[in-house]
Design a protein around this nucleic acid. Sequence first.
DNA 1: CCCGTCAAGGTTTTT
DNA 2: CCTTGACGGG
Length: 747
Amino acid sequence: MSLLENLNPEQLAAVTLPRESALILAGAGSGKTKVLTARIAWLIQTGQVGPGGVLAVTFTNKASKEMLHRISTMLPINTRAMWVGTFHGLCNRMLRAHWKDAGLPQAFQILDTQDQLSAIKRMFKVLNIDTEKFPPKQLVYFISAAKEQGLRPKDVEAHDEYHRMMVRLYEAYEAQCQREGVVDFSELLLRSFELLGANAALREHYQSRFKYILVDEFQDTNTLQYHWLKRLSGPQGCIFAVGDDDQSIYAFRGARVANMAQFERDFDVQNRIKLEQNYRSVGNVLKAANHLIANNKGRLGKELWTEAGEGEPLRVYEAVSDQDEAAFIIDRIKKLINEEGYSRSDIALLYRSNAQSRVLEQALFNAAIPYRVYGGLRFFERAEIKHALAYLRLLDNADDDNSFSRVVNFPTRGIGARSIEMLQDLATQQGISLFRGVRLMEGRPAASLQKFNELIERMRFEVRGLGLAELVDKVIEASGLIEHFQKDREGEDRIENLKELVNAAASFAAAEGYYQDKPATETDEEKLISPLNDFLSHASLEAGDNAAAAGQDAVQLMTAHAAKGLEFKCVFVTGLEEGIFPHENSIGNSMQAGDGASVDAVEEERRLMYVAITRAREQLFISHAQQRMLHGQIRYHMRSRFLDELPEEVIKWLTPKRAHVASQGWNNAGAGDWGSNAGFSGNGGGYGGKKTTPRPYPIGTGVAHARFGSGVVVAYEGEGDELRVQINFGKQGMKWLMVSLAKLEKV
DNA sequence: CCCGTCAAGGTTTTT
DNA sequence: CCTTGACGGG
C-alpha cells in the first residue's frame, strides 16, 4: 500500500493504530505532519471511516491548509466533508450551523483582538470608567483568562474591589457583545463548548459523527480547548494527539503542557509512541539540542537521532557589540552564498525579540543583501482594510456598533464627537444599536447621521445580486474610501491594498462555499448575504501573511517563536545573552501557566532555544555580544547559560572561549577575527567627566559578589555614599547594589 | 478636523 | 533608541 511506504517503524505504528486514543510524542523534524495526514488517509482508504467522520484540529491556518493539501494529494476524495481547521475555525463552523441554538444572530461577526479592545474602550466611555485605574487592556486580559477557564461572570470569584469591578465589566462587555451580535476569539470556543454541553442531541450527533479526532501541536492547547476536545469526543472518543512537550513555548498565552499528561489519564491512553528519528538536521545540531533540553525537569523524555552525518560543528562567536555581531553575520552570509553555494532563502536569522532585528536589518541593507522580516501588521489588520471591512460588516449586521463607530465619520462627513456622543446616549438609553438609534435622532446633527445611514442602506440595495468580489468592489467605491485616499499623498499603497481586498474576495469566492454544513433552506436574502458573511468570518479568523513584501530570494529574519515549524539549511541564532535569551523577565521568575499553576519561566526559554536550534538542517551559528543597544542605552550582558549548556564536542569557538565572566572590559575583547573591524562606537558611558563620584568598577567589567557570584557592571546611579551600581549577575538576574555596602571584587 | 508635539514605555503570538 | 498614544493649537 503506497500510503504506508516510506514510514519508519514508529511512524507506521502510529499511522495504523486501532481505534483508541493515543499520544504521539513527535520530536522536531520527525515527520509529524506526515504521520497525521497518513493516518487520516489510511483510515479513509481502509474504509474505517468516511471523510465526514474525521475531525483534525491545528493552531494555525497555515498548518490546516498544509494538512488538507497533503491529504488531497494522497486520496482522491472531497476533503470538504472533513472537518480540518483551527480550533477557532471549527468552532465558528459549528456555531454558524447552529446559530439559533447557540443564541447568536445568524450574521454574527467575529471580533479580532483590535476590535475587542476598541469595543471595550467604547464601553468604558459609555460607563464612564476611569481608564487610569482600569486600563482597557487589563479587561481584555481578564476576560480572555476567564473564558479560557470556561468561566462566565457569575462563575468568577472576586475577593477584592478591583476584581469585583472586573467581573462587573466582564458582565457589561458580554451584554454589549450580545446586543451587537459579535463574538471575540475566546467566545467562539466557549460558546461552542457550552452549546455541546447544553444540547444533548447535538452533542451526541457530533460525538457519533466524529469517530476520529486528530490534534496537532497538542502541547499548545489551553484549558478550554482541552475540555472542548473532551466534550466533543465523548465517552467513546478517540483522539490522536500529536505534540512535543519540548517545543511548548506558548505558556505565556495560556498553553498548558500538562494537558498531555492529563490526556493520558483522562483517555486511558495505552499507546505513547515516540517519534525520535529526525529527518531534518545533521548530527551535531541534534546533539546540541538534546544536550540543552536535558536541563529541563519533568520532561516526557525523548532523544532525537539521525542517520545523517555529523555535519559541521556549531560555530559560536562572541561579539564585542551588537554591531559587531551583525558584521560577523554579514560576513558569514557572504561566505555561505558566494563560496558554499547556498541561496539567500536558505539562511535564517533568529532572535528572541523583534527589537533585535533593527541592527541586523541595517547591516544587511548596507551590505545590499535582500532580506525579509516576519512579524508586524498583517493584511486584514491594516487600517484601510479594517475600514472597508467595517462597511461590509454594517451591510451584514447593522447592529455592529464597533464597525459603525469606525466608519461613521471615515472618510469625514462632518459627524463630530458631539453628535456621536448624543447618538450614543440615546442608543444606550433605548438599549439599541447606534445604527437604529439614528432613526430616533432629532435636530440638526441628526441630518448628517441620517445621510450616513442612507448611504449604508443604499449600498445594501445596490449590492443585491452581485457576486462577492463585485460586492466588495462596489462597497469600497461607494464608501468614499478610494476618493479619500486619492487625496492623500501617501494613499497610493492603501488604494493598492483595497484593490487587493477585492482580489482576496474573488479568490475566496472561487474556492467555493466555505461551509458545507449550511442548511439548504436559505431564502434569497440569505443567499445574498451569506457569502459575504463567510468572507467576513474568514477575514477575522485568518489575518493573512505577516511577512514584509515577498521580494526575490531573501535572507529570512524572524523571532525564534515565529520560526517554530520552519526549517532552514543555515541558521544564525543571535543574542545568546543572559537577559536577552533567556529574557530578563524570565530569570528568577516563575510564570502563570494556563491553569494558574506556576511553571519555570527559564525552562520555557530553554525550550525556545531548543526550537531555534532544531530549525537548522546543515549549519548552525550562535552568537552573543558583550554590549548592545537596548531602550536607547548600552547594556552589558553575560553570555547566556544556554551556550554553556551545549556540549563542548560539537562546538567550534570562532572567538576564544572565555572562563566564566563574559566581559572583562573591551581592551582584550576584540581578539577574534572580527573584533578589529567591528563598527563599535562609543565607550558605553560612565566616563562623563563631570563632578561625579569615582566609580571603582568601570562599566563592562566583571566583578564578583559573595552571594550572587560573578557578574558584569552595567550602570551607575546616585552620588557619594548613595552611589549604586547595577550588575548583571546572569542567572541571578540584574541587581542594584550600594557600592559602599556591597563587597565587590574585580574579576 | 488634522497635524504637531510630548510623554511613556518597551518579550514572545495565533485566532 | 523608537514607536505609540494622548492632548492642544491652527
